[in-house]
Design a binder for these strands. Structure first.
Lengths: 345, 345
DNA sequence: CTGTTAGCGCCTTCAA
DNA sequence: TTGAAGGCGCTAACAG
C-alpha cells in the first residue's frame, strides 16, 4: 500500500509545534472555546506556519458527515442546470460544503450508478434533477441520505422534498401572452410528457386556449424530448403545413434551438412570420437575434433554495431555520417579453 | 456527537452475513483473487443483498487516496469551461473517480481559498484553469497534489503540466482567414493581455497582418477582459469610427456576445456590413443568426487530455501509460467558417 | 484548562 | 484460504 504522501502534515504536527495536545488543537479548530487565549494564539500560529489543512475525510469518518453534497443532473451542458448548479455551489460553499457534480446523461441507469457513487462518498445530501423519478427515489430512500428534488418531480405518490416551478401556471401564462397578442393559430412543442413538468406546461397552455375558446389542432401539437432534434423535427413539420401556426410555444431551451434552425431553413423570419415563445431564459441567447421572449425559470434561485432545504435537514439547529413549510417549494416562473413575440402579421 | 446514521451498513455487516472475515470481504471487493470461488460468491451475494457501498472516505484514510479530483475554473457559466469540465468528468468517472467542481469567479483570492478546500478534501489531483497563475502555482506546489493546468498558463517560469492550445497559431490563422477574404481594415478585440493566452492570440494575429503588409491601427485594437462588457464597449467605439473596420476578430465568446449587441444597436448587419470572427465555438450559438465563424478550441478534448495526464501521474503503472511527452500538451484550434465572415461589402 | 484515549470503516501485514 | 489486529487523522468523551 502506498502511504499517504509523507509531507502531508497532520494535527499531530501542529500540536507538537504549538506544544499542545491534539485535543487542544482540535478544540481551537472547531471553536469549542475551551482553550486559553494564549494557547489559541500559539496553535493558530502553528497552523498557519505549517500551512495546515484538516483532513476532512478523517473528520468525516469520525463525525459521520463528509461536508460534501452531491448534485446529479441529466445534462451538464444545459444552461438551466448549470445555472441551478451555480446556485447550489454558491450556497454550499458559503456554509463550508463542497459539491460533487455528477452527470446522468438522461440515462436512468447512469443515474442509479451515480447515486451509488455519491453514497460511497458519503455525501451529506443530494440535489437531484431526476431522469427516472420513481426508481431513483426508491433506491435513494433506501440509501438514506436526504435528497431534494429539483425541476422534475418523480411520478406517482411523492413524499420527498422538492423545489419546482408552477409549470401549469407557466404554460397558462405563456398561452395568455400569445393569445393577448392576437394569435389564434398557436402551436406547442412539448418535451417529455411522461414527466409531470412536461405534462403540466401543456395542461396550463391548453387551459388558457380553452378559456379563449381556441382549439389546439392535432397538427399543432408535438411531443418528444427536450433536445434540439425534437424542436427541429417539430419545426419542420409545422412550417410545411398548408396553414402554419402564427405562434409557437416551445417548452424548453433545447427545443427552441432546433426550432430556430428549422425556422431559418424554412426561410421564415421571427417574429415577422411567426412568433416564438421559449421556455428557460438563457442569458447568452439575449445577445443574438431575435432576442427571445421567454418563460424564465429562476434556476439559480432553485439551486439556492434546494440547498437551504438540504441544510435545514442537515443542521436542524441552525439559526436561520425556516418555518417548516410543506415538502414542495413552488417557485414562480416569470414572463420576459422581448423581440421574438409580436402581433400576427 | 451525532453518530453516523445507524442504518449505514459496513464491511462488517457484509462479513457477518457471508460468514466470512472482513479481510476476506475486503479481498473480494478489491479483487485480490485470494478468496475461494465459493466464498467470493457468498460475499458478493451478501454485498448486493445489503446494498453495500464501501465507504470511500474510510478507504481513503487508509490508502491515502480519495478517488476525487478537483476542477477549479474561473467562471462556471462560460460554455468553454463547461465543455472542458464535461470532458474531465467523463474521463474521471470512467476510471472510478468523482469530480468536485469549484468556481473561483475570476478572483485570485477565491482561487487560493478553493485550492485549500480541495486540499482539505484530499483530492488526488486538480485540473486548474488559473486566474492568478504564479501565486496559485506556488501555493499549489507546496500543497503537494498533482495539478494539470488547462487553457491558461501561469506567467513566468513554468515547470508544471499543462494542456493548452497554440494561441499564437490560432490568432495567426484567424487573421489569415480575414485577410484571405479581402479585408484590410481589420480590428481585434483582445481579452486579458496579461495572460499569455491573450497576448499570444494577438501576437499571432499581428504577425499575419505584418506578413500581408497590413497595419493594425491603434483605433482598431482594443484590450480588456473576456466579458461581454468589454466586447460591447469595444464594439461601440469601433462602430462610431469615421472609418470603421470591415472585419473584427473577437478573442473570446464573452467578448463576442457584447460585440453582437453593440452591432445591433449600431444598426449594422453581420456579415453584410462587418465580418466577425469569434474565438470559442459555442454550440448554442450555431442555432442563431448569424451562425458564427469561429476559431474553435477543443475544450472537451482538453479536459480529457488533462485527466489522462493526471492519471498518468496518479497511477504510473496503469497499462495505457503514455509515452512521456513534455510537460506542455499543445492542442490545435480549428477554424470553422460559417456565416459571420464574408468578403468585404 | 489541557492531555489521554477510544474508536469511525477500511485495508493490509502477519499468523494460523 | 482465512482470521485477528493495528493504524490512517480526527473528534469527543473522560481524566487529570
Amino acid at each position: 500500500m502506498r502511504p499517504r504522501s509523507t509531507n502531508s502534515i497532520t494535527i499531530k504536527d501542529v500540536a507538537r509545534l504549538a506544544g499542545a495536545s491534539v485535543a487542544t488543537v482540535s478544540g481551537v479548530i472547531n471553536r469549542k472555546g475551551t482553550a486559553s487565549a494564549g494557547m489559541r494564539r500559539r496553535v493558530e500560529a502553528a497552523m498557519s506556519a505549517l500551512d495546515y489543512q484538516p483532513d476532512i475525510l478523517a473528520r468525516g469518518l469520525k463525525t459521520g458527515r463528509s461536508r460534501v453534497i452531491g448534485m446529479l443532473v441529466p445534462d451538464v451542458s444545459n444552461p438551466f442546470f448549470i445555472e441551478a448548479m451555480s446556485g447550489v455551489e454558491e450556497t454550499a460553499r458559503s456554509r463550508g460544503y463542497s459539491v460533487i457534480l455528477s452527470n446522468s446523461n438522461e440515462d436512468p441507469a447512469q443515474e442509479q450508478a451515480n447515486l451509488g457513487v455519491l453514497h460511497s462518498h458519503r455525501v451529506d445530501g443530494v440535489v437531484l434533477a431526476s431522469v427516472s423519478g420513481q426508481a431513483a427515489f426508491d433506491r435513494a430512500t433506501r440509501r438514506r441520505f436526504p435528497i431534494v428534488f429539483i425541476d422534475r418531480l418523480p411520478p406517482g405518490r411523492f413524499a420527498g422534498k422538492a423545489v419546482i416551478i408552477d409549470n401549469a401556471d407557466a404554460g397558462y401564462r405563456a398561452a395568455r401572452h400569445l393569445i393577448g397578442l392576437g394569435h389564434t393559430r398557436i402551436a406547442v412543442i412539448a418535451g417529455h410528457v411522461e414527466l409531470s413538468l412536461g405534462r403540466d406546461r401543456v395542461a396550463g397552455f391548453r387551459r388558457a386556449m380553452r378559456e379563449a375558446r381556441l382549439t389546439l389542432r392535432d397538427s399543432y401539437h408535438h411531443e418528444g424530448d427536450f433536445l434540439p432534434a425534437n424542436g427541429y423535427a417539430a419545426g419542420r413539420a409545422l412550417f410545411e403545413l398548408a396553414e402554419p401556426p402564427t405562434a409557437i410555444f416551445s417548452c424548453g431551451n433545447g427545443i427552441t434551438l432546433g426550432l430556430m434552425r428549422a425556422l431559418t431553413e424554412a426561410g421564415k423570419a421571427c417574429p415577422r412570420d411567426v412568433s416564438i415563445l421559449s421556455f428557460d431564459d438563457v442569458p447568452m441567447a439575449n445577445y443574438f437575434h431575435p432576442q427571445m421572449s421567454t418563460v424564465a425559470q429562476p434556476a439559480r434561485e432553485m439551486g439556492r433554495e434546494a440547498m437551504r432545504i438540504l441544510f435545514a435537514a442537515l443542521e436542524p439547529d441552525a439559526s436561520e431555520a425556516k418555518p417548516a413549510r410543506g415538502n414542495l417549494t413552488v417557485l414562480q416562473a416569470e414572463l420576459r417579453i422581448r423581440e421574438s413575440t409580436a402581433r400576427p402579421g
